[in-house]
Simulated scan of single mutants.
Amino acid sequence: MNATEILEKLVSFPSVVGTPNAEIVAWIRAYLAAQGVAVTVLPGPEGDRSNLFATIGPVDVPGYILSGHMDVVPAEPSEWSCAPFQLKRDGERLTGRGTTDMKGYLATVLAAVPQLVAARLQQPIHIAFSYDEEAGCRGVPHLLARLPDLCAPPLGAIIGEPSNMRAVLAHKGKAAARVSLRGRAGHSSRPDLGLNAIHAMADVLNAAVEQAAALVQGPFDAAFAPPYSSLQAGVIAGGKALNIIPDLCTLELEARAIAGIDPAGLLAPVRARAEALQAQGFQVEWTVTSAYPALALAPDRPLAGLVAALSGQTPLGAVSYGTEAGLYQAAGVDAVICGPGDIGRAHKPDEFILESELAACQRFIEALGARCAA
C-alpha cells in the first residue's frame, strides 16, 4: 500500500480524542505484522485505548523514534463539504479529518516500513503512536514510562506534527485546569440566605485576568510569538435560572509557558485566590486537566543537525503550539518536530494534505533509514 491508500484507511477510523481506539490500533498492528515487524500494544489506564510501539532493527542499539498520535479532534459533518471520515481526493489534495494533524505522518511512516525492513538497519527506527494527544498529551506519558523496557536509550525522537517538513526546535509548555466553586442555592429574593457561586467566581476570574496582564511584562523569549508566557480563561459555566442563587460555577483556564518556565506555576495565583474562598463557606475543587512541558532543543544537538540535513531546510527556532516533544525531552530523549502539512489547516473543516507533502515526508523517513543502515 502506498501512503495515500494507507491514509484513506486511517481516516476511515473515527479515532476522536477521548474515545476507544481499538480498531485503528488493531489495523496498524496487523499492517506492521504483515511486514514482519513485532508490535507492542500498551493499554492505557482508561482501559479502552492504547499506545503502540514497534521496532525495525536491533532493539539493543540506540536509534530513533518516529512519534505521532492516532487521535483526532471532533468533526461536525454539517461544517464540511464532504464526509470528514472518508478521504476525498481532488487532484493531489486529500481531504479528511486528521489528514494533516496527523494521520498523514502516520501514513508515511507506515508506507516507508517495507523499505526500512529491507534495509537491514544497523541502528533501529522505532514507531511510537499514542492516543489522546489532543486532550493534552494524556497517552504518551504511559508509553514513555515503558520505554526503558522496550528499547535501548534512543538517540532522538522525531515528532511528526505538521511543520511543512521543517525542523522545529522549541515550543511552549502548557498547563490547563478546571476550578469548581460550590455555594448554596436559594431564591434570588433572599441573597442573604445563599452563597452565589458565580459572584465568587468573579474574584477567581479577576485573578486570571491580573495574571495574564502580568505575564505580558515578561520574561521574554524572542523565539516565540508572542514572546512571553500567557494565561487565559476559556470556558465559564454556572447557574440554572435567573431567580435562583447559583450554587455551582466552573471555570476552565490554561497557561502557556516559554521554555524555562513551569506552566503549572503560572496558574498558582489563580488557584490561591480560588482556595481562599473556602473561608467564606464555598467548596473549592481544582482539577488539572492537562499538562506538558516546553520543548527546547539546542541548535547544536546532533538531532537538530540530522533533521536539518535530511529535510534540506534550516530549523525553525520555535512555535507557540504544544506537542508531545516536550515530554520526550523531559524523559531524557532529545526531540524535534518535523512533519508534513501546515498547522494552519489543523482542527478546521475540510482539513487536507497534499500527496506531494506525503511524498516529501516519506523521502525524509527513507533517508533516515539509509543513515541507520550505513
Score class of each variant (00 low, 15 high):
335 A>G: 04
326 G>T: 05
324 E>Q: 04
321 Y>C: 13
311 S>R: 11
313 Q>W: 02
320 S>F: 06
322 G>N: 07
329 Q>W: 03
328 Y>F: 15
317 G>H: 08
337 I>A: 02
322 G>K: 03
322 G>Y: 13
336 V>N: 02
326 G>V: 07
311 S>K: 05
328 Y>H: 12
331 A>F: 03
318 A>P: 06
334 D>F: 00
336 V>K: 01
331 A>I: 01
335 A>D: 07
332 G>F: 00
326 G>S: 07
328 Y>C: 14
337 I>Q: 05
338 C>V: 09
327 L>S: 07
324 E>S: 10
324 E>Y: 04
324 E>G: 06
334 D>T: 01
327 L>M: 11
334 D>K: 01
310 L>A: 00
313 Q>Y: 03
312 G>P: 14
337 I>V: 14
333 V>Y: 03
325 A>I: 12
331 A>D: 10
332 G>E: 04
331 A>V: 01
333 V>D: 11
308 A>G: 08
329 Q>V: 14
332 G>K: 04
322 G>P: 06
323 T>A: 13
312 G>W: 05
334 D>G: 00
334 D>S: 04
336 V>D: 03
315 P>V: 07
335 A>Q: 03
326 G>H: 06
309 A>F: 04
332 G>R: 05
321 Y>V: 08
331 A>C: 12
336 V>W: 04
310 L>S: 01
334 D>V: 02
321 Y>S: 11
321 Y>P: 02
334 D>W: 03
332 G>D: 09
309 A>V: 09
328 Y>Q: 09
317 G>C: 05
318 A>K: 12
319 V>T: 15
326 G>K: 05
317 G>E: 14
315 P>G: 11
330 A>C: 12
324 E>M: 09
321 Y>N: 09
330 A>M: 12
332 G>S: 06
329 Q>K: 05
313 Q>F: 07
312 G>S: 14
337 I>M: 11
332 G>A: 10
323 T>W: 08
308 A>E: 15
